[in-house]
């Protein structure tokens, strides 16, 4: 009887140990997308809109633009430094300014860009915290 209880406790301990371990595995890009969506809603949605379509002539869309689908380093810099260039983006001018978002954590930037690159009709690879670290180190 005592033995069974012991085994039970041991089993429980192993189980809860295993349970506690599984969610702590390195975050897959699916959960990155889920978290990125939250970041998007809080910091990007007003300007780039709920569907990523932007505001005509004011804020650019995040749908298949050369920035969104292009070089990750360049894309990360847009988030870190913002954009006030008023240079044409895919042949369109946008009159608003984008403020820097360098206050976001590496993880948040990786998440939001992964979300953007996997949504609004975009299909591009995930952005990792390592990518963000590398980009930040260049500044």
């Amino acid at each position: 009887m005592k033995k069974i209880a012991m085994i039970g406790v041991a089993l429980c301990a192993t189980l809860s140990f295993l349970l506690a371990q599984t969610p702590k595995k390195p975050a897959g890009s699916q959960s990155s997308v889920t978290r990125g969506k939250k970041v998007y809603e809080q910091y990007c949605l007003t300007c780039h809109q709920v569907d990523g379509s932007g505001v005509p002539h004011l804020n650019p869309p995040l749908i298949k633009t050369s920035f969104v689908l292009g070089d990750k380093g360049k894309l990360i810099q847009v988030i870190l430094k913002g954009m006030q260039a008023s240079e044409p983006i895919d042949d369109e001018y946008y009159s608003n300014n984008m403020p820097p978002h360098n206050f976001l954590k590496d993880q948040e930037i990786a998440d939001v860009l992964t979300y953007v690159r996997r949504n609004f009709g975009n299909k591009a690879s995930a952005v990792t915290t390592a990518d963000v670290k590398t980009a930040r180190a260049k500044n």
Partner: peptide, 18 residues
């Protein structure tokens, strides 16, 4: 509020895909 916001916007996003 932020929680509510993300919930509500989530439903907006869902709507907009359609």
């Amino acid at each position: 509020l932020l929680g509510c916001l993300s919930l509500l916007s989530a439903s907006c996003l869902a709507d907009n895909g359609d």
